Simulated scan of single mutants.
Amino acid sequence: MERRNEILHAIQAKPGITFRELARELGIGIGDLQYHLRRLEKEGRIFSRKVGKRRYLFPRGFEEEAQRLLIAISTETRRRILLLLLEGQRNQKDVAEKLNLSQPTVSYHMGELVKLGIVRARKDGKSVIYSLSYDPEVIARVIRDYRPGLWEKLADNLIDLLAGMGEEE
């Protein structure tokens, strides 16, 4: 029971944590963690969402809007894409060039962001234009409330992005 409470507190402290990340942070074996998570889910104290190959864990009653955003910002590439889209809409080629990513990588991550409802995609001739479907203030609030450690990373990414834009002109 003590181990289960430790797991629950970790999920409450970091909603949207992935299964693997939780196992690493708590130093718990995969089988042991699976057992306790099943029990916590049966008790209705937590729930999980599987997106792609990752399983994200949330405390009971966690807000839907924040769930999707926490899943979206769980990877560095998606955070960088969202940061770029905060400046305005972009096409896939532009995102790939600005972030020094391959177009297939951008396509994959954009597809995941569209599925989560964080980004909108609209056809414009042969290209697809992407834009945020969330208010930037909501994104900022979720990061501030649930991932305050990301502020510094995002600030560094923004500085890198702005420095890169200055070099092109």
Rank of each mutant, 00 (worst) to 15 (best):
M1Q: 06
E2N: 00
R4D: 07
N5E: 14
I7S: 01
L8K: 10
H9T: 04
H9R: 15
A10L: 06
I11G: 01
Q12E: 10
Q12A: 01
A13V: 05
K14C: 04
K14G: 03
P15H: 04
P15Q: 10
P15T: 02
P15D: 05
I17A: 00
T18A: 10
T18V: 13
F19I: 13
L22G: 00
L22K: 05
A23R: 03
R24M: 08
R24F: 00
R24S: 08
E25K: 10
G27I: 09
L33V: 13
L33W: 14
Q34I: 11
Y35K: 14
H36I: 11
H36A: 07
L37I: 15
R38C: 03
R39W: 06
E41A: 02
E41K: 15
K42D: 15
E43Q: 11
R45Q: 12
R49P: 13
R49Q: 13
V51Q: 11
V51I: 11
V51L: 02
G52Y: 14
G52N: 09
F58I: 05
R60D: 02
G61T: 09
E64I: 04
E64M: 09
E65P: 06
A66E: 08
Q67I: 07
I71W: 04
S74C: 10
E76K: 09
T77H: 08
I81V: 14
E87S: 00
G88L: 12
G88Y: 13
Q89H: 08
K93S: 15
D94F: 01
D94P: 05
V95M: 11
V95R: 10
K98I: 14
K98R: 15
K98M: 13
L99Q: 06
P104F: 01
V106N: 00
V106R: 04
V106Q: 00
S107M: 07
S107K: 14
Y108A: 01
M110W: 01
M110K: 02
E112M: 01
L113T: 03
V114N: 03
V114R: 01
V114H: 02
K115G: 11
K115H: 13
L116K: 02
L116T: 02
G117S: 06
V119M: 01
R120K: 15
R120G: 14
R122H: 10
R122N: 12
R122C: 00
D124E: 15
G125N: 12
K126P: 03
S127D: 14
V128T: 14
I129N: 00
I129M: 06
Y130D: 04
Y130H: 08
S131P: 12
L132T: 03
Y134E: 13
D135M: 11
E137V: 12
V138K: 10
I139N: 04
A140C: 09
A140W: 14
R141H: 10
R141D: 10
V142Q: 08
R144F: 15
D145R: 13
Y146I: 03
R147E: 04
P148K: 09
E152P: 00
A155L: 11
I159D: 09
I159F: 01
L161I: 09
L162H: 00
A163C: 00
G164K: 11
G164C: 08
G166T: 08
E167H: 04
E169K: 13
E169P: 06
E169N: 10
